[in-house]
């Protein structure tokens, strides 16, 4: 199977700007992108730099952008890419992290953020005589997050990190859930307080990039949502994000639909809504684009409220 790999090259010592270099390789039908890169390095160009080790999607070292999406090079089959995305495959280093050379990035930021969420158990109270006993169910929920192999693919594609490097990001927050949700941990409240601070869970824009990128189905965004739910359930409702969720729920509960004006008022508070949204309101009025001031209920709204009550919301 012939394929062209279009590889992004960069060597800071050469003084050259980053550029693309095409390599033609012949691979067996079962070849992965990593096999192609290793063949290039072995047979055509020994200067190509990349990271890899296990070649079986376990070690997490070979994440890179393949056709623009972050994936593990050892898990991404060339035949499938050719069938679905065309004959030329682009290979670039991960995003949101500085490139050291070619496909190798500096992951310091990744590790700093994982460390920042305190990724270890902090038990409270006297130690049990034997081992800590936990139920199977409580571990099932955490097992998904434990599958993380620290590859960085999610961080590479995160749209918030693109505009704000201070965001804790998907990998660290998925790890955060793994410990906040552990029944053996004694610092749940402090953890939730830290994770809901600015640059934490409420800064995620729910873009699903990390869910798509993760090769281990950790679905980091879902874990971020898990922390949001835990925080609201623990009474941490004073963040703007939590107020937004509460206001949204109350609008749908009482009318069946979303009341956008009411939502803005409740999320921002009357004063800030008036000051901040006024210029927009005037522009909207001029264009006949005001949402209706009187929000109408659907006729069956009481059935909706009953569903909310039934589920305790």
């Amino acid at each position: 199977m012939d394929v062209t790999l279009k590889v992004k090259r960069y060597d800071p010592e050469s003084g050259e700007a980053p550029h693309y270099q095409d390599y033609d390789v012949d691979l067996p039908e079962y070849g992965a992108v990593l096999d192609g890169l290793l063949a290039i390095r072995d047979e055509q160009d020994g200067t190509l730099s990349l990271r890899c080790s296990c070649r079986s999607a376990i070690c997490g070292s070979c994440a890179m952008k393949i056709n623009g999406r972050s994936r593990l090079a050892c898990k991404t089959m060339v035949s499938q890419l050719k069938a679905e995305e065309g004959d030329v495959i682009s290979v670039e280093p991960m995003g949101n992290q500085p490139v050291i050379k070619d496909l190798v990035v500096n992951m310091d930021m990744f590790w700093d953020k994982v460390r920042a969420v305190q990724p270890y158990l902090l038990p409270e109270g006297p130690e049990p005589e034997k081992e800590y006993r936990v139920s199977n169910e409580s571990m099932m929920e955490l097992a998904v997050a434990m599958n993380c192999i620290m590859c960085g693919a999610c961080v590479s594609d995160c749209t918030v990190l693109e505009v704000d490097p201070s965001f804790l990001g998907p990998a660290a927050l998925a790890k955060a859930f793994r410990f906040a949700g552990d029944p053996r941990d004694g610092h749940t409240q402090q953890r939730l307080a830290a994770y809901t601070a600015p640059s934490g869970v409420w800064d995620c824009t729910r873009c699903f990039m990390c869910v798509s990128a993760c090769p281990k189905d950790v679905a980091p965004m879902e874990r971020i949502m898990d922390i949001r739910v835990m925080a609201i359930d623990a009474g941490m409702t004073q963040t703007r994000g939590a107020r937004h969720v509460e206001a949204f729920a109350s609008s749908v509960k009482h009318s069946g639909r979303l009341n956008e004006l009411g939502l803005a008022l409740k999320t921002f508070g009357l004063l800030r809504a008036a000051i901040d949204l006024a210029p927009l309101g005037i522009r909207r009025l001029l264009r006949r684009r005001m949402p209706p001031l009187l929000h109408k209920k659907i006729a069956t709204a009481k059935n909706i409220a009953r569903l909310f009550d039934r589920l305790g919301v």
């Binding site: 729910r206 949502m225 949001r228 739910v229 609201i232 937004h244 969720v245 509460e246 949204f248 729920a249 609008s251 749908v252 069946g256 639909r257 979303l258 659907i298 006729a299 069956t300 059935n303 909706i304 569903l307 909310f308 589920l311 305790g312 919301v313």
Partner: peptide, 26 residues
């Protein structure tokens, strides 16, 4: 569907996933 309800727009799921599933099943 004039009696349909808001789908939750991804926001309601941060409160309660089963509620979102119920509303959309409706």
């Amino acid at each position: 569907l004039d009696q349909a309800n808001c789908t939750g727009a991804g926001v309601l799921g941060e409160r309660n996933e089963e509620l979102v599933d119920t509303l959309n099943a409706r």
